[in-house]
Nucleic acid binder design. Structure first.
Lengths: 339, 339
DNA sequence: TGGCTTCAGTTAAACGTTTAACCTAAATAT
DNA sequence: ATATTTAGGTTAAACGTTTAACTGAAGCCA
């Protein structure tokens, strides 16, 4: 068995309270006693038990990270990167991250992740879009909450967001600057605020550039923005609309699908059509041509979210309802060109 | 505050011991009392506190997952997939996974991950190659240990391995079957057992096919098997060795680098040279041509490792020193062809 | 009838910490 | 000289469980 505080107390010839106080640098303990204690700790290689500490302080040193199972399973490691971002921060602070998924159709009667019920976490980071019913139920626990890459309907929470509107603007503006006039938008799941914000940015860019916004140039799939849907959206677009010279896909997955459609149908990129995506996933660089895109700093989203959480927990301040918007960056590669 | 076992006891009109026993389906409690207790639990929405339970049972419900920081940071999400595999299993069993990294130059004096010292985990899964000093230090704690994708020097541990030798054999055999005779191997970090096993398989395949093994066809970089090193290895290979018609790269990252070198130097794949990798990473499908490779079931490695761990913890049996070898699979795509 | 089992629970100790309340001796104030 | 404060600890309760040991009633057997 590993040594307990009792062993340290005996070895140092003091009470266990003194050991505890010494560990926490309490003023009441003289330097000389503290050193005695510290020496005993070193000799025994003592480390306090987290369980015992947790029981009395009602803290666990863990943060929950929740996302829906379909986000968890998708091939693009978008949320994985955010998760890793949170891990980076915990390295510095004294926390660990517990991961849990919920059903994307979470209903009122469903159980919350076990770590919430058993109080194994001090706070919860929610990543990506989650059902309303889940947020409702989660909010009943008075537990610090941080949302990342999703803007919950009720608005008194801490949120870390991507500047999707500005990114959409930058993407479309880039195409405008290259001389394009017939610029299409392909997207999916427009109820997702991130996606609709990108569309908003697209519209703003065309508007401020004096280019008419045509509904026929906007293709929205109802489903999830995945490669297959990008393929289908491109098909729907090009079958009815021959004069499009540039396409802004709502994310890289759809852009990759669209690129595949073009390859299958003799549409040259960027020769015939310029294509720009959103997210900047690993795959972009391997495409032929490499995909121009708007970079979302995925790891940074995670670090920011965890930073907010750690602040929330340490300051014990009221729910600050803080909002952080992390900037995006246009990455020009080979899939766009001057017309 | 959430309800405690005391609240349940009061509501059900029994002692707290009865509540505990009822929860654990102890025979001593009649169905009628158990139901009373269960009803109270439901009404109060009671869930036992993990900290309190942990304190007395000396369990935490957590499993540690350790890898070196360079593995954690590399772009190919190889170990991330293994990690996710462990997560999948914990969904079914009652565990969570805590992630920690160690320095790849871990020395004897370095501290172990905090979750081990503070006893926040019931067992540790070690992924990938880790320093000997780390294993030494870790072994001193009598904590269940499972190694995945690495074979520790001292051999009394549970291990989940990839069948690298067989995979290397299959890869080289595939090239032989396509009629190739001058088959090169490019690799790096040959001290890693996985890599050297793949080389062994390569040699076996040539041998059993009656093809001479030439040292000049084997290029080993000392560094890490990454894209850049694949590029360099291909350069070294083709500059001195014009008649090679097929290359087996020790992993996909190096294969991708080699492919880049070939593209830069007018070597057509698979026209002039057939190329095969190892791992089957996401990027392979996006390459032009898509890469023939040997699939390593990454997620399955994680699930297997976690299954072994869960068995170890539940059976409380002696360290079974179990070995599991998960099979690989040849995936033929566009980068190899008949000569 | 009386002694022995079995049944169905209860009591209380234990797990390893933190921390409020208490204590004693020395220092300071009146 | 006595009363009060301060310094530097110690004592003991509390956190929420589990579980070994105990108890009292009922059933059984001779």
């Amino acid at each position: 068995m590993s040594p307990t505080i009792k062993d340290v107390a005996k070895k140092a010839g003091v009470s266990i309270a003194t050991v505890s106080l010494a560990i926490h640098n309490n003023q009441r303990i003289t330097t000389i006693t503290r050193n005695k204690v510290l020496r005993a700790i070193k000799e025994l290689n003592y480390h306090p038990s987290r369980s015992a500490k947790g029981l009395v302080t009602k803290t666990t040193g863990n943060i929950g990270f929740v996302l829906t199972d379909d986000h968890f399973l998708k091939t693009e490691p978008f949320y994985t990167m955010i998760f890793l971002g949170t891990e980076f921060v915990t390295r510095g602070n004294d926390y660990y991250v517990l991961l849990a998924t919920i059903n994307k159709d979470f209903k009122e009667g469903d159980e919350l992740p076990r770590f919430i019920l058993e109080r194994s976490v001090d706070g919860v980071i929610v990543a990506g879009k989650v059902p309303d019913a889940f947020i409702q139920k989660l909010s009943k626990f008075d537990m610090p909450l941080v949302f990342v890459d999703y803007f919950p309907p009720v608005d008194d929470h801490c949120v870390v967001m991507v500047d999707n509107t500005r990114g959409g603007y930058q993407a479309a503006k880039h195409l405008v600057d290259l001389g394009h006039k017939e610029i299409a938008f392909i997207g999916a799941d427009i109820t997702h605020p991130s996606i609709s914000d990108r569309l908003t940015g697209y519209k703003q860019a065309l508007e401020t550039s004096g280019i008419e916004i045509k509904q026929s140039n906007i293709i929205i799939d109802e489903d999830y923005p995945a490669r297959q849907n990008g393929y289908n959206a491109a098909k729907r677009l090009f079958e009815k609309n021959k004069n499009v010279t540039a396409v802004f896909a709502c994310n890289d997955a759809m852009a990759i699908g669209a690129m595949q459609y073009c390859a299958d149908n003799g549409i040259k990129i960027p020769g015939d059509v310029s294509l720009i995506g959103f997210d900047d996933v690993e795959a972009d660089l391997l495409l032929n041509p490499p995909l121009t895109t708007v970079r979302v700093p995925k790891v940074e989203l995670g670090t920011e979210a965890m930073n907010v959480m750690v602040n929330l927990l340490s300051s014990k301040s009221a729910n600050c309802a803080k909002k952080i918007v992390v900037p995006v960056e246009l990455i020009v590669r080979g899939s766009t060109r001057k017309i």
